[in-house]
Simulated scan of single mutants.
Amino acid sequence: MSKHKNKLTARNFPSAKDEARQAQARPTPDYDGPNSAYRLAFTDDDFMLREELRPVRMQLELLKPELVQQEQGIKSTIVMFGSARIPDQASAEIRVAEAQALGDAATLKRAQMQLQMSRYYEEARRFAGIVTRESLARGNPIYVVTGGGPGIMEAGNRGAHEVGGKSIGLNIVLPHEQHPNPYITPELCFRFHYFALRKMHFLMRSVALVCFPGGFGTLDELFEALTLIQTGKCRRRPILMFGRDFWSRLINFELLIETGMISPGDEQLFHFVDSAEEAWALLESEYDLTQTHHD
């Protein structure tokens, strides 16, 4: 009869998960109360949420998405920024019809503008589909990453989902609760407290940034990326701005050059595009998409 042999690589100590489960399964009534200091530090929410633990919480927000993406084999991403307020075309058409039925001129004007802007939702959706499908076909998947919410963010995740690809959502806790859109791959749907760490994860794996019309949040993300590239803090990569007319009216780049606020040539840090196909063609011209990844 053969003797049972121990596994050579067996753990020398119980895991933190094992000990946490054991502590939960066998509580100590005299010490496990709400005000007790007896709880394991890493399972004690009151302790983990102390002001002094902010550096630890920041480290955790950096580590969790990083480790999950490593495990999922995600090496290259395309970041899609844009307004949460831009609807899909079908929804916008319904709002126009409802506004027409109401007979209110101001409501109708707003609905018609939303319908006009909905073309950006549809372009974002098509672009995300092209990126996901074409990069998978070349053996170098590029994953769409968005802020996880509605509008342009939803369009990006939706486009990837519709062609059978995975996509990432980096959600943020806001005073008015943001709900993840239904097209994010569940195991890649993250939630952040710190804006700064969310922004880091947008850029860490990105091979390009695609910016659709948006408000303060979109402008914040766009100009931070431009600043990091302009100052050499991160490598240069394509920044595509969808909608030449929108961006040209919103930002007077010529004035920035004329007044010396940016240097001649800084306007070449980004490209205007007006269609999903134009954006994809630019990326194809920038990268060898058949090149094998090396760790």
Rank of each mutant, 00 (worst) to 15 (best):
K3S: 11
H4E: 14
T9C: 10
R11H: 10
N12H: 14
A16R: 11
A16S: 11
K17Y: 10
A20D: 10
A23T: 10
P29N: 06
P34I: 13
S36A: 08
E51V: 10
L53E: 12
R57M: 09
Q59I: 13
Q59M: 15
L63T: 12
V79T: 11
I86N: 05
I94G: 01
R95M: 08
A101F: 07
A101G: 01
Q114N: 15
L115M: 09
A128N: 07
R133W: 11
L136Y: 14
A137I: 12
R138W: 01
Y143V: 09
T146Q: 05
R158L: 07
V163P: 01
V163H: 00
G169S: 07
L170C: 06
I184G: 01
H193I: 13
H193S: 14
L197C: 08
R198K: 09
F202V: 08
E221R: 07
L226Y: 05
L228P: 00
I229Y: 03
R236Y: 07
L240Q: 02
M241Q: 02
F242L: 07
G243K: 00
D245N: 11
R249Q: 13
R249Y: 11
F253K: 02
F253H: 04
E254Q: 12
E254R: 13
L256I: 05
E258M: 10
E258S: 14
S263E: 12
L269R: 02
F270R: 03
A276D: 03
E278I: 00
A279F: 00
E284H: 07
D288Q: 09
H293E: 14
